[in-house]
Amino acid sequence: MGAVAWTAFVIALVALVAWYLSYTAARLDRLHTKVEGSVSALDAQLVRRAEVVREVAGSGALDPASSALLADAASASLDAADSTSPGEELRADGIGDQRAAVESTLTQVICTTLTPDVIAELRDENSGWPDVVERLRSAGQRVEIARRFHNDAVRDVRRLRHRPPVRFLRLAGHTALPSVIEFDDRLPDGL
């Protein structure tokens, strides 16, 4: 093999490695953007759920104690959402432990106050609230889906960032490694 052939081989190899690294860096950037978008989507769904819960609390269909518990938990969730922007939350690796605890508390209050009997009463056509119950169910499902979508995006980022070339060449730069978001987001029985 002549010098020209070796030179062409080395140039092709360097071009292939450069293309792979460029492709990997661009993919990593897209995945980080996906994580950022999923945090914003999750935040929006959590706010939507809290607003629907507050509407249920103010409906007059529940006893005063249950209404007060729901209203307080929903207000705490909305206050937690207002305290930080989604961009700040992303830098804190998701929505943060404090916000996750507030959202778990809201879920627990929903499950405690909205028993299957109460849900059945609200779903009754004569109650005037079946559409609110449907919006609450929909909001709860959207929260579950948004959290799962975010956690899948985080796993994709982590999987790519743990590859040796990405770590060795620091293709992620100084971007914080995102973490999965875990909190109680189950729907009450009967919803």
Rank of each mutant, 00 (worst) to 15 (best):
V56G: 02
E125Q: 15
S83K: 10
Q98S: 15
S75W: 09
S59I: 04
I95Y: 00
R91K: 12
L106P: 01
T105F: 07
S104A: 06
A71H: 11
L69E: 14
R135W: 07
G128F: 06
D93G: 09
S104V: 02
V102R: 00
L90Y: 12
L136H: 04
I110E: 04
C111S: 14
D97T: 14
T105P: 01
A76H: 10
W129L: 11
S83L: 10
V56N: 03
A100E: 11
T113N: 09
R91A: 11
P86V: 08
D82V: 00
W129M: 13
E88W: 10
Q108D: 14
L78G: 05
L114F: 02
S75R: 14
A65Y: 12
S127G: 09
V132F: 06
E88V: 13
S85W: 13
D72K: 14
E55G: 14
G94Q: 02
A100C: 06
G128M: 02
S67E: 13
T115H: 07
D117M: 05
R99C: 11
R123N: 07
A80V: 03
V109A: 03
T84W: 06
T105M: 10
V56A: 09
D63C: 05
V109S: 04
E55W: 10
S127Q: 07
R91E: 14
A65P: 01
C111R: 15
S77C: 09
A81Q: 06
T84N: 09
A120W: 10
E134M: 02
G128L: 06
V118C: 07
A57K: 03
S85P: 05
D93R: 14
D72Y: 11
N126V: 14
T113R: 13
E103G: 01
A74P: 00
T107V: 03
R99Y: 15
A81P: 08
V133G: 02
S104G: 13
R99W: 11
V118K: 10
P64L: 15
L90K: 12
S59K: 04
A92R: 11
L70C: 08
V118Q: 10
C111W: 00
S83V: 08
A80C: 06
A92I: 03
A73W: 03
A76K: 12
A68W: 08
P64I: 14
A100N: 04
A57G: 10
G94M: 05
T113I: 05
E121N: 15
Q98N: 12
I95D: 03
G58K: 07
T112I: 08
A57N: 05
L90A: 15
D124N: 15
G60L: 04
S77R: 09
E121W: 12
A81L: 00
A80I: 04
T112F: 13
V133R: 02
T105L: 09
A76V: 07
T84V: 08
R135K: 14
R135I: 07
P116M: 05
A100L: 03
A76I: 07
D82N: 10
S59V: 03
A71I: 09
L90N: 10
R135S: 10
D131F: 11
